[in-house]
Each structure stands twice: as C-alpha cells, then as structure tokens.
Amino acid sequence: MEIKKVLVIASDFSTTPGARYREDGEFSGQEFLEKLLQPEFEKAVNGEYILKVDLDGVWGYPSSFVSGSFGKLSLEKGADLVLKYITFKSDENPIRLEKIINEIKKPIKK
C-alpha cells in the first residue's frame, strides 16, 4: 500500500493540542478524532492506502489528547487495523512517536 494522504497535525489542526473531550476546552483529542483523524482513517481503509500522520511542529502532546484521539480510535477499530492504515512521522521527537504507538497498541479505556 502506498501513502496517499499526509495529515500534518501542526498545520491541519493545532500546534497546542488540548485535553481529552470537547467540553474540556479547545483543540481536544475528541475534536481531532472526529474532525480529522477518524474521517481520514476511514478514507484510507476504504481506498486501501496509508494515511501518514506528521507529529512534528507541535509544542507537546498532552497525555489526555493522545488517549482521547489515537487511543480512542484504537479502542473502536482495533490496534492492528489502525497500525495497518496509519503510519507516523516525527523527526524531532522519537519518544512521542513511541508513546503514540504504545497508546494504540495498549489503549487505556477512560
């Protein structure tokens, strides 16, 4: 499968992601999931291509944002399917890349 879409969080969503739910404030994980991540993920699954998520340029990902977006998607769709259709890029911070992949592999139900 080839990469047909690149989702750059810093420019397509925010450089300062917020908390878990919409009611918690701006740029929440839920908002990101519903507005961008899930629709783009569905398109990738239906179109049989890979969605690349660029994590760079963001000034830190709060744990609640990661759990409310990537973790939630994994709980709903399954870790294997998510990791089959989404690939991640972070040239500046390998620890955040590891954390997001771990969150998908072992999502915490909240």
Binding site: T16, W59, G60, N93, R96
Partner: peptide
C-alpha cells in the same frame, strides 16, 4: 501555563531521546 508545561515535557522527551 498548561501550554508551557506541555512544551517543557516535549523538551524533556528530546533530552531523554
């Protein structure tokens, strides 16, 4: 303050890396 805390964690992640 919260944005600053998130950025400091980002800085620490790069130091850990």
């Amino acid at each position: 303050d919260k944005d600053e805390i998130n950025f400091i964690f980002h800085e620490m992640e790069m130091q850990i890396a």
